[in-house]
Amino acid sequence: MALFGLRVFNESGQLAMDTNSFTYQIIWQGVIDFSGSVPSYTIAIPGFNPANCVLMIIPTRAQDVQPSESDSSGNLRSYPYVTTAVGQVAVLPKNPSATTGLQSKVVSKAYAIRFAT
C-alpha cells in the first residue's frame, strides 16, 4: 500500500507527527514583503491560538535563500522575527532586541495553520 502525506521525525528518529494522525486547516495566507519600507506587520487572524496554530513563512524568490552560513548578506535573506498571540501574529524584519545588523529584505508567503489531533 502506498503512503501519501507528511511525516515529521524528532531528533531521535522517531515519528513525531503524521498527517494520518491529525488534521490541519489553513486559516490565513498572505504575502509578507520586506523588500520595500514596510517596518512590520501585525496581522489579525480570527481563530489563531499559539496552543494549536503555527505561522509558516516560505521565501518566494530565489534571491532570498541564503546560499551558506558564511554569506555576508545573510541578514538581508534571513527570516523575519515572528511573535504570536491569541488572534494575531506580529512579523518584524529583525529581532527587536538587536542593536546592530541589517534587517530582512525577503518577500515570502505566510500561512497560518490550525491543527488538531
Score class of each variant (00 low, 15 high):
A110S: 09
I57Y: 01
N95R: 12
G5W: 07
K94Y: 11
A44Y: 00
V54S: 03
P80R: 08
K109Q: 10
C53F: 04
P59K: 03
Q88L: 02
V89L: 10
R7K: 11
T19C: 07
S35G: 08
K105L: 07
F48A: 05
T60P: 01
S21A: 12
Q88V: 00
V54I: 09
T23Q: 14
T23F: 12
T83A: 14
Q88H: 06
M56V: 09
P46N: 14
R7G: 00
K109D: 04
A2V: 13
V8K: 06
S12Q: 12
I57P: 00
M17N: 13
S21E: 13
S108D: 06
Q14A: 15
V8N: 04
F34W: 03
A112S: 00
A90Y: 03
N52C: 14
M17C: 13
A98W: 15
A44E: 06
A98P: 12
Q88Y: 01
P96L: 12
A85P: 08
E11N: 07
V91Q: 02
A2F: 10
Y41S: 01
R114F: 04
R7E: 11
S21M: 10
Y24P: 02
P80T: 14
F9L: 10
T83E: 15
P39H: 03
I45G: 04
T100F: 14
I26A: 06
F34M: 05
S70R: 09
S97G: 11
Y79L: 13
S70W: 09
D71C: 10
L6R: 13
G5P: 06
L3I: 09
A116M: 11
F4R: 12
R77I: 06
I32G: 04
A90L: 05
Y79P: 09
V31R: 02
A85E: 11
K109A: 05
Y111C: 05
Q63T: 04
S108L: 01
P50K: 00
Q29V: 01
E69T: 11
R77Q: 12
V106C: 04
T84R: 11
A98R: 15
A44M: 05
S108W: 01
S70P: 01
I57V: 12
D64A: 03
V91R: 01
S21Y: 10
M17W: 12
D18P: 08
Y24F: 15
L76A: 06
G47L: 01
L55D: 00
G30R: 02
W28E: 00
P96N: 12
G101V: 14
P67H: 12
V82K: 02
Q88A: 03
S72V: 09
A98V: 15
S21F: 11
S78D: 14
A51L: 15
G5Q: 09
I26T: 11
D18M: 10
S35E: 12
L76T: 02
S97I: 09
P80A: 08
L3C: 07
S73K: 10
A85R: 11
V65C: 04
S108Q: 05
E69D: 14
N75I: 05
P67M: 08
E11A: 07
P80S: 13
A98N: 15
T83P: 03
Q66E: 10
V54R: 02
P46K: 01
M17L: 15
P39D: 09
S70C: 09
F22W: 14
N49W: 03
W28G: 02
F9G: 06
P96I: 13
G36E: 09
T19Q: 05
D71M: 04
R114K: 15
S78N: 13
P67E: 08
S12P: 01
Q14W: 05
S37H: 07
